[in-house]
């Protein structure tokens, strides 16, 4: 801007900026991208990368192994819509419990929010950016193994018909993954935003997910398991977000038999509860940040 010779060490004075400025939408996009990167520890220290990397490895490993197996003639073991159910529950719980606090609790802890709120964004933009970022991160974590499995399987498909069959199986699987990401990111963020203490936030998210899952499983077992026709066993899944998701999957025509929940004719109820839970989490998140912006 000024034609000062290089190397002169003195204060050049203040420079105004009269170039282009990003609008609100672009600012929110920048925050989303920043948050998405940090949900994988990118741009943060080595320690911040441990959980995301382990989670990715754990999720992808079965897909890799199975994809290799398929290449040698064995069948595809995992359905795209369930993948490895227990593993998915555990890994996703750990990932969300570790990374939702990374996205929100850190900023709460250091009281940096007033600096965001004093910038052009609106109240809801900050939680929106965080939510989109974590949803995208979860989506990546869930869908990448499915894609690995898919690519590995079609690579050894004998004809176009086989490829088409695989693709038809994959698409609902991707849809289920989207449902998981959308709901689990909301649950994780609203719980993590309750406290600025990261350890507590992680604890709250992890315990809530595992505890509700355990309670739900126990209820179903007590009522005779998923094969039981009793109403208790059918609605027992409603007590855990993971089982709600699985119930919705089965209701929507999921191919594989349910591992955890079996909604039977309570399917629509699972759908309604899933939507209500999502709405409650997002509403809670918005309300939380609305309050924070006014304090």
């Amino acid at each position: 801007m000024s034609e000062t010779p290089a190397g002169v060490i003195h204060d050049l004075g203040y420079r105004r900026y009269d170039g282009p400025r990003l609008g609100r939408a672009q600012i929110v996009r920048a925050l989303t991208w920043h948050s998405f990167r940090s949900s994988f520890g990118i741009g943060r220290g080595v320690k911040a990368k441990i959980v995301p990397v382990l989670a990715c490895v754990a999720m992808c490993l079965p897909a890799f192994v199975n994809a290799f197996g398929v290449a040698r003639g064995s069948p595809r073991l995992f359905g795209y819509d369930v993948y490895v159910p227990q593993l998915r529950v555990v890994v996703l719980t750990i990932f969300v419990a570790a990374q939702a606090p990374e996205l929100v609790s850190r900023d709460l802890r250091s009281h940096v929010l007033p600096l965001y709120f004093s910038r052009p964004m609106r109240r809801g933009d900050y939680p929106l950016a965080k939510y989109v970022a974590l949803t995208a991160a979860c989506l990546l974590l869930i869908e990448v193994p499915l894609l690995i499995l898919y690519v590995g399987t079609i690579a050894s498909a004998k004809n176009g018909h086989g490829v088409w069959a695989e693709t038809r199986a994959l698409i609902p699987g991707l849809g289920v993954g989207l449902m998981w990401a959308v709901l689990m990111a909301a649950v994780g963020l609203v719980l993590a935003s309750l406290t600025g203490r990261r350890a507590y936030a992680t604890g709250i998210v992890a315990i809530s997910c595992f505890l509700t899952w355990t309670v739900s499983e126990l209820l179903i077992q007590a009522e005779g398991g998923i094969t039981s026709a009793s109403a208790g066993a059918r609605i027992g899944g409603l007590f855990s977000p993971f089982n709600i998701l699985d119930g919705v999957r089965i209701w929507l025509g999921g191919t594989s038999p349910g591992e955890d929940a079996n909604p039977g004719h309570f399917g629509p109820l699972y759908g309604v509860v899933a939507v209500l839970l999502l709405a409650a989490c997002l509403g809670g998140l918005a309300a939380r940040y609305r309050k924070l912006s006014m304090s």
Binding site: M1, S2, T4, H10, D11, L12, G13, Y14, R15, R16, Y17, D18, R21, G23
Partner: peptide
């Protein structure tokens, strides 16, 4: 008033 010999930019241009 502008220190260091830099020129003051057009203030109005910077505003959205």
């Amino acid at each position: 008033y502008w220190p260091g010999g830099t020129t003051p930019p057009d203030l109005s241009a910077a505003l959205p």
